[in-house]
């Protein structure tokens, strides 16, 4: 009886498997024959009822049936799985994608961001001030006497005799000190204007970052240390530097900071005018006259100030040879950075 059923299931299975075309049908086949409640399992259940004599014989036949069915099933499964994979490969993955645009900040702003983040790490606040300034804030309070040749250092766009477009970010120093008592520790980024002919090397508008630190015991040695720390972070750990005496009416002693030209490594090239050095910023100790102008006690407080041009910094860093590209806003340029 069982023997008959085994034969029939074998025939039925062979019939059923021949009609299977896909994984889904194969799964149905598995459920029908090989699952826990499938036909083969039922036969094994029935085996328990068989006589002692029949049991080993039938058991052997049944095992053969199960092995046979399982093997056929597995063979077909492998075959069907491989067919399924082939259908996935039909996608041409090399087709172009639709890229979403992430815009970018202007290269000057990116450069400024880098400078800001370094100084913020050194405990500086970021303060802004207006571009249309009073002559007093831009010159007078910063110790530029009227009719003094120092004013020739900065060609000025005037609105009238009392107002002008600021020629540097230094007037923000005055604004901060007029509002705040020491300690003052801030950088002041912003746009400045100079009435200079436009060329590949100069533009009538550019950007600066000013720095100021005033407290009880601020020294020239600390100014040097702070700016060297900045330059190392911004230009690279291994740079060489030097501080050269210079003149600004609002600082004394005044200095210009040079670093070794990173294009020629100090050997001399076109960019560093064959000197091996690049001037990166101006700095100095705040002149006592400036403290007097903002009612700080110049005996008690000392301070340092510095200022650097962002365009120049970016030109050097990215190897750009014409300052005008910053203001042309050519989309092909903007997209590069």
């Amino acid at each position: 009886m069982l023997d008959e059923r085994i034969k029939k299931i074998n025939v039925d299975f062979n019939q059923d498997i021949s009609t299977v075309n896909d994984i889904k049908q194969l799964e149905e086949l598995r459920l029908k024959y090989l699952s826990r409640n499938g036909l083969v399992s039922q036969l094994f259940d029935e085996l328990k009822n068989a006589s002692k004599e029949e049991k080993p014989v039938l058991g052997k036949v049944l095992n053969t049936l199960r092995n046979d069915i399982t093997e056929k099933f597995n063979t077909l499964k492998i075959h069907l799985d491989s067919l399924e994979k082939e259908s996935v490969e039909k996608y041409d993955l090399s087709l172009p994608s639709f890229e979403r645009t992430i815009g970018s900040k202007h290269l000057l702003i990116q450069t400024l961001d880098e400078i800001k983040s370094i100084f913020k790490g050194l405990g500086f606040s970021v303060i802004e001030g207006p571009e249309l300034e009073s002559d007093f804030n831009n010159f007078g309070a910063l110790n530029f006497p009227p009719d003094h040749p120092a004013r020739d250092m900065q060609d000025t766009f005037f609105i009238n005799s009392e107002f002008l477009l600021r020629t540097h970010t230094s007037p923000v120093q005055i604004r901060i000190m007029e509002k705040t008592k020491p300690p003052v520790r801030a950088i002041m980024p912003g746009r400045v204007y100079r009435n200079e002919a436009i060329s590949s090397r100069s533009y009538c508008v550019f950007h600066q970052v000013e720095g100021l630190y005033v407290d009880n015991d601020v020294t020239f040695a600390e100014l040097k240390g702070t700016l060297v720390a900045f330059a190392r972070q911004f230009y690279g750990e291994n740079l060489k530097y030097r501080f050269r005496p210079s003149f600004f009416p609002f600082t004394e002693p005044s200095a210009e900071m040079d670093i070794t030209c990173f294009l020629c490594h100090g050997k001399g090239c076109k960019v560093c005018k064959h000197s091996g050095w690049l001037e990166i910023l101006g700095c100095g100790m705040v002149d006592p006259n400036v403290f007097d102008n903002v009612n700080y006690d110049h005996e008690q407080y000392t301070g340092y100030a510095f200022g650097m041009g962002i365009e120049r910094t970016a030109l050097l860093k990215y190897g750009i040879d014409d300052i005008r590209v910053f203001f042309d806003n050519d989309f092909r340029f903007l997209k590069q950075f």
């Binding site: 815009g103 202007h106 508008v205 203001f327």
Partner: peptide
């Protein structure tokens, strides 16, 4: 998706 410009205010 916007790119930043810096224009001359004059």
């Amino acid at each position: 998706g916007f790119y930043e410009m810096v224009n001359n205010p004059l």
